[in-house]
Design a protein around this nucleic acid. Sequence first.
DNA 1: TGACTTATCGAACGTTCGTTCGGTACTGTA
DNA 2: TACAGTACCGAACGAACGTTCGATAAGTCA
Lengths: 223, 223
Amino acid sequence: MPRPAAASPPARRPPTSAKFDHILESATREFCEKGYEGASIRDIARRSRVSLAGLYYYVESKEKLLYLIQKHCFATLIARLKERLEAAGSDPEQRLRLLICNHLDFFLRHREAMKVLSHESDSLTPPYQADVAELKRAYYRLACAIVEDLKRERKLRNLNTRLAVLSLFGMMNWIYTWHKPRLDPDSDALAEHIAGLFLGGIEAEADGAARLGRGSNDRPRRT
Amino acid sequence: MPRPAAASPPARRPPTSAKFDHILESATREFCEKGYEGASIRDIARRSRVSLAGLYYYVESKEKLLYLIQKHCFATLIARLKERLEAAGSDPEQRLRLLICNHLDFFLRHREAMKVLSHESDSLTPPYQADVAELKRAYYRLACAIVEDLKRERKLRNLNTRLAVLSLFGMMNWIYTWHKPRLDPDSDALAEHIAGLFLGGIEAEADGAARLGRGSNDRPRRT
DNA sequence: TGACTTATCGAACGTTCGTTCGGTACTGTA
DNA sequence: TACAGTACCGAACGAACGTTCGATAAGTCA
């Protein structure tokens, strides 16, 4: 049973202190290496050079730790994208390239946090879960909107936006499982590659789907 | 006289018994739902309708359970692919489509096992790890060989095979995070979509890379 | 000086974990 | 009838888990 007591929770002191950030960073590394369930609060405390009890002065639970990591990571990713999109023009291809660039740049710059985000997306329970899910949905919608623009501009009537966007995310989010910084291209080259693959692909795909008489509206029957 | 304690482990009876398979299946579901670390042997035993100790008559450890699931799943996937490839012609595009079809068909037919395979690929420790890693490498090489053929046939001199293949796996292996059987296309339509995207993409990508003067041999400098 | 707050910790709490031990009941053979 | 092997389980083991408690210094301000 988690919290029976009705007393006053410590209400984490300054939400941004150097020590607090340090703990979040240690937790990120620990979750990244051992997974959420596999990582222990004791190891996180040790890594942060704080005692076990000392850690609880800053964070109220292990789950909240994961929540804060995911939330902060996602929020930053989205904020940067929005910034860059506002500074950009209205050309859909450029905007899509920007999304890919932003995603991969952030991904490789914060690979540990992004692995925790990708790999532990199901580890949170309802109170926190919904919050992160909302951010994910917002990000997904952003991508969909851009692909829809592209679809309109290029008259790719038969493109299934959902499938295309999720395939794109697949390419990008899978990278953490194989990318070796010293062996594989950097984020710019990677972005170029994936953008090329995707942009070339959707044109051919939409043609192919048309030829086969299957289009984006060709959704499976609902029971 | 009791048998020497350290000598003979129970040496799991018939490696294929109905009960043993049932346990493996229950474990698969449990690992799928809660992750390897999050799942408990007690829950697996309960799900298998065996007592906690009874489970150890069939399987010698939790890790071995994960190992057997991953190994069997991967081995079957590869075996089916090889079968189908042997029956197929030598056209690289057809062979690639076959690989994608096989992967997605198996993926959606055994979604729980495949999620355990994709999601827990880092959970095994050295004795078992290497064994599964070898299967993964074999599968990867199979895909690379096909893409290399395609590259030769279509003279896509500037295509980076590694990146292309891993992007393809990304699209395919990410599916378990979003595919809803009642809402999304079945495996054939999915395969069609991904094959179209990939095949269209690599042509454009290779052209684009050429135009930009970057090709598959343009690997990053090794410090 | 004394009352408060902030930052920190050692030690423990109760629970759950993976695993093992010592049994028992059934099922063939001999 | 006796014995060996198979299939199974209750109860426990020690370790590790997330979390809490009560205490203690150091700093702040009256």
